[in-house]
């Protein structure tokens, strides 16, 4: 079997705020009835995490489940476990109206790390979204655009943001984030 390589082979931009392309990261797009108990049980079975509420992300160890739309979740889990997880979902949800697809190789994942306020600013400079601590907290996920491309991001902790986009625009997204980070903080978010 060929060796899986992430879009930018873990490109890294060093500075007061670092930007790194991480991965390969396992990702599954799961669509269905999020309010259905059997659906929730299937999600819990493969991730250990519960179905998140609107615009929320739930975690269980290295796994996470992100709310993408009223009928869509993004499941994050180790790359090597995706095949088995999709099989489990297909078995658990057979007979219901659902879709489970391995999108690991169709996405790119980035991590922005630094001081809490400046990390928020790196994204705030690129997206038409409110990144203030009052509007965007731990456990929230926001789908929006990053300059010209669609992206979604969440905080894994204060001072560390994860961001996903389509693999085809990985270089563009990385360059945006690295440029935004290199430009330095503007002090907009009074968070240290």
């Amino acid at each position: 079997m060929s060796e899986a390589v992430s879009a930018l082979n873990n490109a890294y931009a060093k500075g007061a705020i670092t930007v790194q392309e991480v991965g390969p990261q396992g990702m599954i797009t799961l669509r269905g009835d999020l309010s259905d108990a059997a659906f929730g049980a299937a999600v819990a079975q493969v991730t250990g995490a519960s179905v998140p509420g609107q615009r929320k992300i739930t975690h269980a160890g290295a796994n996470a489940v992100a709310w993408m739309s009223p009928d869509e979740l993004l499941i994050l889990l180790p790359y090597a476990e995706v095949g088995a997880a999709v099989s489990s979902l297909n078995a658990a949800l057979a007979g219901t109206h659902f879709l489970a697809v391995n999108v690991s190789d169709a996405r790119a994942l980035f991590r922005v790390t630094g001081k809490p306020g400046p990390v928020r600013e790196v994204i705030a400079k690129l997206a038409p979204a409110d990144l203030s601590p009052d509007a965007f907290a731990l456990g929230d996920i926001r789908r929006t655009r990053l300059a010209q491309v669609a992206a979604a991001f969440w905080l894994t902790q204060e001072g560390e943001a994860n961001l996903v986009c389509f693999r085809s625009v990985a270089r563009y997204a990385f360059d945006l984030l690295a440029t935004s980070a290199a430009a330095g903080p503007v002090g907009f978010f009074r968070q240290g």
Partner: peptide, 12 residues
């Protein structure tokens, strides 16, 4: 009305 986001025009 589906995700609750206050979306500005360029997101739409």
């Amino acid at each position: 009305p589906y995700c609750g986001v206050m979306a500005e025009e360029t997101e739409l």
